[in-house]
């Protein structure tokens, strides 16, 4: 089925005229719903529960885009995509934005006809192994069988890392994350590799999570962010500024809980962000209170981080590199002015 879909996408890329033209905002408004390419099986980033309610950091990012456009965070249709189908789905216009823990690389940015928005999660690749193997470092994995998901930067980093360290490697590659984890759990591989955030999330799904440890090495840079098609600068701006609005809100101390009080603030930065002063929303093609809607309906960056992957979630990942620049992290947003 997935293959059929990707074939259809490929055909759609070729046959439908001007799928990538500069009218994404109008198309989305007319349709009345944002099509968001999501990860359908990664706790913390994109995962529907039994009732079909989606949760995750990337999921909330799409909700924030919908909040900015429609003043309604629920007007999102989440399209679950595998790693290997995701770019074709975006290129063909199947989804308007791809927020699926996608690593920003030069070749993806240039030759796929895509633009990467700001990084909404700084990640790095790691390894999960069984404790019983008594392995303490990834450098001891010479000759190991490693389960990996297809169509990811992970697959390439893994091969590079083993090649650089002159180690032998046996990869077992699967198209879907579920099968990859299942095969690792069944003992087909010695190690499972993906982004570190994913390792913590997937470990929870194993039969005995306590029997497995994440090795200390982080072997790559994985800046994850939302992606849009080339050729629509307005849409690209909206996606970028959705993230920046959430970062700026956190920096200014505006949270989901206090955003209504903050609207009365005299601080000019807050006034500009929440739209009580200036016409910064109109310039984006949105209403002037777009950022207010994002924070009110979805939250600031800290709200969605803690809820989905941070201390309020089962993953319990520390902010680390994803802290604000004022707190020693890498999250930084240009000012609204």
């Amino acid at each position: 089925m997935k293959r059929l879909l990707s074939l259809a996408f490929a055909a759609a890329v070729g046959l439908t005229a001007s799928a990538a033209s500069a009218q994404t905002l109008n198309t989305v408004k007319q349709r009345g719903v944002l099509n968001c390419g999501s990860n359908g099986s990664l706790a913390g980033f994109g995962l529907p529960d039994a009732q079909g309610n989606w949760t995750g950091l990337d999921v909330d990012f799409c909700r924030a885009v919908a909040a900015a456009i429609f003043n309604d965070a629920s007007k999102v249709k989440f399209v679950p995509l595998t790693a290997k189908d995701r770019f074709t789905a975006l290129q063909s216009g199947e989804v308007d934005v791809l927020a699926r823990n996608t690593t920003w690389t030069s070749s993806r940015d240039t030759s796929l006809g895509l633009n990467f928005g700001p990084v909404n999660y700084y990640d790095g690749q790691g390894f999960l192994v069984r404790k019983s193997l008594k392995v303490n470092s990834a450098l001891e994995l010479n000759d190991a069988a490693v389960c990996v998901q297809q169509g990811t930067t992970t697959e390439l980093n893994l091969a590079d890392y083993f090649r650089a360290n002159k180690m032998k490697l046996k990869t077992v590659t699967f198209a879907a994350a579920d099968e990859t984890v299942k095969a690792y759990d069944a003992g087909r591989c010695d190690a499972f590799t993906t982004d570190a955030s994913g390792l913590y999330a997937e470990r929870l799904r194993l039969a005995n999570p306590a029997d497995h440890i994440v090795l200390p090495e982080i072997i790559s840079k994985e800046p994850l962010g939302p992606v849009v098609r080339h050729g629509d600068d307005q849409w690209f701006d909206i996606v970028k500024w959705t993230h920046y609005a959430m970062i700026n809100a956190e920096e200014l101390g505006i949270t989901k809980a206090n955003v209504d009080d903050m609207k009365k603030s005299d601080n000019p930065d807050i006034k500009r962000l929440l739209g009580t002063e200036g016409k910064h929303g109109e310039a984006l093609g949105l209403s002037n209170d777009w950022a207010y809607q994002i924070v009110k309906l979805v939250g600031n960056y800290s709200d969605i981080f803690e809820k989905n992957v941070g201390m309020a979630s089962p993953l319990k990942i520390a902010r680390g590199q994803n802290a604000l620049w004022t707190k020693g992290g890498l999250q930084y947003a240009p000012p609204v002015r």
Partner: peptide
């Protein structure tokens, strides 16, 4: 085979190669 991780033509070529190069039309 793609479902069970056997590296056949579809798994390698329209899977990994398509994804890494992004050239869906040519690869398919």
């Amino acid at each position: 085979a793609v479902a069970i991780g056997y590296p056949d033509l579809v798994q390698i070529f329209t899977g990994t190669v398509l994804n890494q190069t992004g050239q869906a039309v040519e690869v398919v």
